[in-house]
Design a protein around this nucleic acid. Structure first.
Lengths: 132, 132
DNA sequence: CTGCATCCGATGCGATACTG
DNA sequence: CAGTATCGCATCGGATGCAG
């Protein structure tokens, strides 16, 4: 696979890297991935997400959804009913993101204990490091 | 941050989600992944990384490395030579992170055009959306 | 119900200067 | 060489109030 570097440590990171960084930034923000996963289960309306996330502010949920919509991961469908009804859903691109993100989430859960142990040992060296 | 799910859409994750979020946060910050990839190529000293990253401030490089070290992904080895010499390297845990991160980077590069197209269409709807 | 506007504190990151 | 200390700005995210 194409790596981020190219053998040289002082690498030529160009457009590839910029794209990667943008994705990583998106993945790193507090709610985007969670929203993607939620919408991966099933489409949902604004307040469904709001309740499911429990802690997100309305302002941030809006901007998160706008960002995902802007990047072409999520579709926004407005039904002009009496009280407005808006449904958000993952499109094909958004669903394709689910796989690599799950891989990362899987890694996180698999190695949670190790990371926590490392943190404990780092702040309290009386613990056995057991790191390499 | 509090509980993420209330059993409605997410089922019952708590600790799992926290672990995932922390990893995602790490992955999302500006330099951590880059450092991991660089160290994945080969161990390096402080200023090697500094030069390779070209743009990072030493303050941030330091805190990035501390964070990775703290989480048990990177080892820091000091050789008490005349001018101090410190080598950073990925340990087994850090190397294991390389795979899922690469998957994500791969996704980013594969779908870069789509995302850029979506952004263009979003800010200028005169373009053909072509999104599903 | 959905979403925008405003305020505001917390945090991230870069620039610079200084030290063992 | 490998950091630490201090600053300043920009962005993120939460709270609240108003509107279509």
């Amino acid at each position: 696979m194409k790596s981020l570097g190219n053998g040289k440590l002082t690498g030529g990171f160009d457009a590839e890297c910029l794209a990667t960084r943008e994705v990583l930034t998106r993945v790193g923000d507090k709610w985007s991935v969670l929203v993607v996963v939620l919408l991966g289960e099933k489409p949902a309306r604004f307040n469904d997400l709001r309740r499911a996330l429990d802690g997100i502010s309305q302002r941030v949920l809006t901007s998160t959804l706008r960002g995902l919509e802007r990047d072409g991961l999520v579709t926004r469908t407005v039904y002009p009913t009496k009280p407005p009804q808006v449904e958000y859903a993952l499109n094909a691109l958004g669903r394709s993101l689910l796989l690599p993100v799950s891989a990362l989430a899987d890694w996180a859960q698999r190695h949670r204990a190790e990371v926590l142990g490392a943190r404990a040992a780092f702040s309290d060296p009386s613990q056995a490091p057991a790191v390499e």
